[in-house]
Nucleic acid binder design. Sequence first.
DNA 1: GTTAAGTATATTGTGCGCAAGACAATTAAG
DNA 2: CTTAATTGTCTTGCGCACAATATACTTAAC
Lengths: 147, 147
Amino acid sequence: MSELNEETMLHLDNQVCFALYSATNAMIRAYRPMLKALDLTYPQYLTMLVFWQQDAISVKVLGEQLHLDSGTLTPLLKRLELKGLIRRDRSKEDERARILCLTDAGTALKEQAKSVPLNMFCHAGLPKEELLMMKASCEALLSNLTD
Amino acid sequence: MSELNEETMLHLDNQVCFALYSATNAMIRAYRPMLKALDLTYPQYLTMLVFWQQDAISVKVLGEQLHLDSGTLTPLLKRLELKGLIRRDRSKEDERARILCLTDAGTALKEQAKSVPLNMFCHAGLPKEELLMMKASCEALLSNLTD
DNA sequence: GTTAAGTATATTGTGCGCAAGACAATTAAG
DNA sequence: CTTAATTGTCTTGCGCACAATATACTTAAC
């Protein structure tokens, strides 16, 4: 990439995006066995993280936090409901809006999830400073791509 | 993350993995309109990058390059075949193996694809040095997670 | 009150991403 | 040659991710 040659840039090994894509796939693969103990997929785990942080929110607010739309979230939320982790009530003020909130089982699951982040940090095997830089770059990229 | 507190680490805003995941989703979203002109999805585009680089390979070799398995690749390759971009022949030496190779249309598509990487680089809006560091970190992470 | 515009959620259809398992071809062992 | 183990591909089933569309509700304008 030191030269912006079109031929060279088409090479897989020179593509940042491919590295990002492959690392993300590998990361989700690495979470799988850990989250299997909680009977959660990675997007379901992210959703639970939001609820543990702020309960009783709408699909819209949840989607803003996760950068996902309702087409993705609605079936995911139905599965979480089926597992007995959340309820999907209707808002009294606005009958269109769902109010998503944790059940006791959903709240209780947080205890079991507490060990996951540190466990993942160990698997990653990168120095904390490098991870923090990576996080900052990803957030900058996300911001640039979404405006 | 300066403290390895379990409560703090469960917070979405402190998770490198979520940043990685969101950035990758946004990146694939950003490719979509660009690749629509080529009638390719992002994983299909990656597959074509491999073929433009080394033609006449098996599903196994392709999977090693892309870090994807045959359950993902077989239907994707059928769609590329249906579009007339590749052929899926059988090997003479080993009847189990497919030999995937570009058609003339597949080869020709490379010209149209040449502008994509630079276009994406502009959208990303990050300095080259930062992207190179990000790429290196992603590759290190992938390597650590796959051994 | 009717109409029009905007908003929140749900539905449908396509294409990954992967686990699990099936199957046929190849190779190794006896 | 026969059996057993391995290998390469395919199939099935599930769960995202998202575009496009539908539906129902709310608000504002008249």
